[in-house]
Amino acid sequence: MADVTCEEFRELASELALGILPGRERAAALAHRDRCSTCREHLDALTTISDDLRTLVPDTEPPVGFETRLLDHLHARTRVQRRRRRLLATITAAALVIAAGLGGWSLGTLTQHQPPTAAPVSPSPRLLTATFTADHRDAGQAFAYTGTPPWIYMAVDTEHDTTTVSCQLQTTDGHLVTIGQFQLSNGYGYWGTPINLDPTTLATARLIATNGTIIATATFTT
């Protein structure tokens, strides 16, 4: 299909945002979106509306046994390792820190039974997450909190017998900073610290053994 103009794109944008534009027109419209930032913004606004509309569908109770079947299926898929269960405590601990009011983040999200707070002044802090991998396997989680003060928290479970690891952060502009050390016990440990950098600029967190070996890496996607 021939190139579409901005005007033609506007004609198609609603159906594109709703995900119902037939193939040929869709391809042409997407090609235009990729090179026209004005139309891209227009489409993004419509897509947000379309996505939000979908969440208004009234809840429907799934068939009896759905939950059990689903959980069995998920567990069969992921082959839960028993030792990884230990990480639960640490995730909960991270929640605790947030709930304890290290930032305003918990207020808006935890108090579901109360009216929303009137006027959020600054953009609400966010919790960025990244998965540690070691030898191509999941090896824990890193959480970076964008509130004041910003902090990072990590929980790892590796096969390494190293006991002391240092944590090195790399920012998206290539800056490297070592933020501290902590101990692992049988490859397992958790640790958190305030950081002096903007968490949204984080590219990776690396755990490095005393002999310089990189034990695990977590990549933040932004």
Binding site: L71, L74, H75, T78, V80, Q81, R84, R85, L87, L88, I91, T92, A94, A95, L96, I98, A99, A100, S106, T109, L110, Q112, L127, T129, T131, D138, Q141, F143
Partner: peptide, 28 residues
């Protein structure tokens, strides 16, 4: 998880989602 704590079913949505990665049954 104690006085100031959050039962798992009260965790914020994104924390619960992050917790899925642990493979923990209660979070799932």
């Amino acid at each position: 998880v104690g006085r100031a704590g959050v039962p798992v079913d009260r965790l914020p949505d994104d924390m619960l989602l992050a917790g899925l990665a642990t493979g923990d049954e209660e979070i799932a």
